[in-house]
Amino acid sequence: MDFLSSILEQGLIYGIMALGVYITYKILDFPDLGVDGTFPLGAAVTATLLKAGVNPYLTLPIAFAAGLIAGTCTGLIHVKFKVRDLLSGIIMMTGLYTINLYIATTNNVSLYSTETIFRNSLMTKIFGETIPGWADLLIILVLILICKLLLDLYMKTQSGYLLRAVGDNDGIVTALAKDKGNVKILGLAISNALVALSGSVFAQQSRVFDISMGTGALVVGLASVIIGISFFRKASFVKTTTAVILGSIFYKACVAMALKVAGATATKLITAVLFLIILIVSIDRKKKVKIHA
């Protein structure tokens, strides 16, 4: 039971990040490596704020805003200075490493003594001294549902249409007399904001900030997005955002099971191998579709 609920918690927390990665990778067709820096950025901001005694619920919008700024920077580097997408992300990722150190002041911050969105006076008031395990899951679920619904709503606005159009056929955005660069920057900003939010929740749940926690974050996000989308390709009643979240849970389940067999040292190797398998499987599907067509 513990094993299962931990998979769900992890899957949902990373699901928030996957929603962000979905915007860049699937909608904008932009492999944003900056995610590896924005995920710990959200965590670093949160750790510092929690240490300073700021209300834990307030850390969420602040982390979101920090991601918004980081994403805007990636966008500006790419659009205004015409640096290639992959390189813009790498520059941001590298720069953010130091910025995260500045924010957190050390490379590891323990959050066991501070309040978090899961453990605070308000929660104790509701549940008493021993907060049940499912309360964590409930909070994460509420958070991710809010993110998902807001994102779904946004995608149905005029601005959201423009964002979808820029990834689909950016010529049409120019034809509509709008600067396609600005639309891309907006997409990157929203994406990175979600990633930083995910980092914030992750830090509060695991009660630790670690400078290396972002390594491979993009791979996890990409894997979730690709699994989600290729699993639910045929099921049109499942919204893509839902599919991405389910993909994240599925991916975390796979990793958790593999870890049980191979042990914690193998984490990154398992992550990489699983991602490779997912890529191969999803590419194979595309081919079959083409043969049928």
Binding site: T157, Q158, L176
Partner: peptide, 23 residues
């Protein structure tokens, strides 16, 4: 990847702000 209705709405708004109104 957008529907006919969505494409038409998108084009119809040219010259105006693409804000948070329904697309």
């Amino acid at each position: 990847s957008m529907t006919i209705a969505e494409n038409m709405s998108l084009a119809d708004n040219k010259g105006r702000l693409y804000g948070l109104k329904a697309g």
